[in-house]
Design a protein around this nucleic acid. Structure first.
Lengths: 147, 147
DNA sequence: TATTGTTATACTCTATAACTATA
DNA sequence: TATAGTTATAGAGTATAACAATA
């Protein structure tokens, strides 16, 4: 059973609002933790996606999280200068690069994963495991269904 | 009963990620709708909070959603120039202003509320009312409990 | 001495489009 | 002619701190 319409309307009205506030909070914590590693959030996102699936082209990475090509390009410049990733010529096409994680990048991976765990656990700590699972499921459906 | 630990860990790992993606999506839609009214998101947020509770000082508005004073100041410049709000000298202190919505601002309110409804409904359309309620409740608890 | 609000300034992020080289 | 990636440039957004007025 749902709440009365007018109350639901009011609460619905705050959905985007709550989402923004939660997202800002998570982002601030993440950025704070990444600062110690001298990584920004985009570089972190790229590291995570390339660790998960190596040899992606820059275009594929950009499409993975709606970031324009030029931003990927610059973020990679930083990561490559620090020796965490490297661009290799793609086998399929000489105008593409495959992005690979270096040994130094692999060495950093455990710290990156630990940060993910800690930030997520910190934000969801007041929910039970079952509640967190449900929340994740609902969010996953929203992401999958809407566009 | 919860999922096996390793799977939960992996899914937990994506909580912040899903949150970011959802928030970005909502923000993009909102910004898109607000463009027609020539309002940015901060100006919109200020309008909504002042409509809900008039006569707030700028400091109070800023604390309401973690926006620094200078940003409130500039956003109000724009809103005031367009005649949507006005700064009145506060009764309590001559160094504060109370922010009030003008008649023109009130006239805009229904459109603003309609945008909120539509954006939220659009994003949550794939959930039942009960599921949306639950999602809102879980998010509200996260916001309330964490800090 | 602390607070409210404004402003100047610099810095970062983002967006646009021009550019090279491939296909 | 279209694509992958880079780069230059401009614009928006954000942060820092200095400032005036008031408490």
């Amino acid at each position: 059973m749902s709440l009365p319409t007018d109350i639901r309307k009011t609460r619905e009205g705050s959905f985007g609002w709550m989402l923004q506030r939660l997202a800002r909070r998570v982002e601030a914590r993440l950025a704070d933790r990444l600062q110690a590693l001298d990584l920004n959030i985009l570089q972190f996102a790229i590291m995570m996606t390339v660790l998960e699936r190596p040899a992606q082209t820059q275009a594929a990475i950009g499409q993975g999280f709606d970031v324009p090509a030029y931003a990927i390009s610059r973020a990679l410049d930083g990561l490559e200068a620090r020796g965490l990733v490297e661009r290799r010529m793609a086998a399929a096409s000489r105008r593409s690069f495959e992005v690979h994680v270096t040994a130094a990048g692999q060495a950093l991976a455990p710290q990156l994963r630990a940060i993910v765990q800690e930030v997520n656990a910190g934000v969801t700590q007041s929910l039970t495991a079952a509640e967190t699972d449900h929340l994740l499921e609902l969010m996953a459906r929203l992401l999958a269904d809407t566009e």
